[in-house]
């Protein structure tokens, strides 16, 4: 049984078919890449999986459970986590608080339990802070705990966003163009980080990326889409030499 099973999913925006009959199956602990030209529908696929959109057609199953009709927060609690193409951190909350919000979601979100400060609640609160610190330490971010994300360099913000995504203990981590906007030095750091995460945590990673260097050095297999449909699938080397892919990326006339 695949961890994530997407079958024949189509997403229609008015007259535009952003995703058409897209299928993928991700196994436990895989590291898979999703590439394609701008506007191919990659982010839309992530939005579908994380519950922001409901597919026009097709089914999505996570841990063998259909996610149709579930709200994003519900999908998250099943163990799906993601980052965004343009970083979406809470810029006016400290790095530590950004992480703590995620930890909170593991407690019940009852109305009154949270406003009355019982002893048990205070204990939980302490645990949460400790856990959040642990997550930050693991990614070597603990020195920024009290900083505001808006004051951090871009590469560090990316890392914080990944840390936040990890802090809900996901089974599936979806990274939307994690290398976007990074300089070369940051890039090697990022490749190491993703590799390390994949090794250390029992999770599946699904990554959208334009930077071939990142995709080629990390992914075990790659899926290429154009105009919302899969045009190729295979190992990095196979993909690199696939004429359809080259055509999609470089346009017709170069062939």
């Amino acid at each position: 049984m695949a961890l994530l099973d997407v079958k024949d999913v189509t997403q229609q925006f008015g007259g535009l078919r952003a995703v058409s009959s897209f299928s993928v199956a991700l196994e436990e602990r895989e590291l898979v890449g999703l590439i394609g030209p701008n506007g191919a529908g990659k982010t839309t696929i992530f939005n579908l999986v994380s519950g922001f959109y409901q597919p026009t057609m097709g089914t999505i199953r996570f841990k063998d459970q259909p996610t149709a009709g579930l709200k994003p927060n519900h999908v998250t609690t099943l163990g799906v986590s993601r980052t965004f193409q343009n970083i979406r951190l809470w810029n006016d909350m400290t790095v530590l608080d950004n992480i703590r919000v995620a930890h909170h979601s593991q407690l019940s979100y009852g109305f009154f339990g949270c406003s009355f400060r019982s002893a048990r609640y205070r204990d939980q609160e302490k645990d949460i802070t400790a856990n959040a610190m642990k997550t930050l330490e693991a990614l070597d971010l603990d020195q920024y705990a009290d900083e505001f994300p808006k004051n951090l360099p871009y590469g560090t913000r990316r890392k914080v966003e990944i840390a936040r995504a990890l802090s809900i203990h996901p089974r599936l981590l979806m990274l939307d163009e994690p290398a976007a906007g990074l300089n070369t030095a940051d890039l090697t750091g990022l490749i190491d980080l993703i590799g390390w995460i994949h090794k250390e945590f029992p999770i599946t990673i699904w990554m959208i990326e334009h930077q071939m260097q990142v995709v080629m050095s990390l992914c075990q297999r790659i899926q290429v889409i154009d105009f919302g449909a899969t045009i190729a699938e295979g190992t990095p080397t196979e993909i690199q030499n696939n004429p359809a892919v080259i055509k999609a990326y470089l346009g017709d006339d170069t062939i």
Partner: peptide, 27 residues
């Protein structure tokens, strides 16, 4: 100080990211 308060603040800064932390914005 409370987690719901923190969620309120998070919601105010970026409503889109909150559900990805497993928190229902409507609540």
């Amino acid at each position: 100080r409370t987690k719901i308060g923190m969620a309120m603040r998070a919601l105010s800064y970026d409503r889109f990211a909150l559900p990805l932390m497993g928190i229902p914005p409507d609540t």
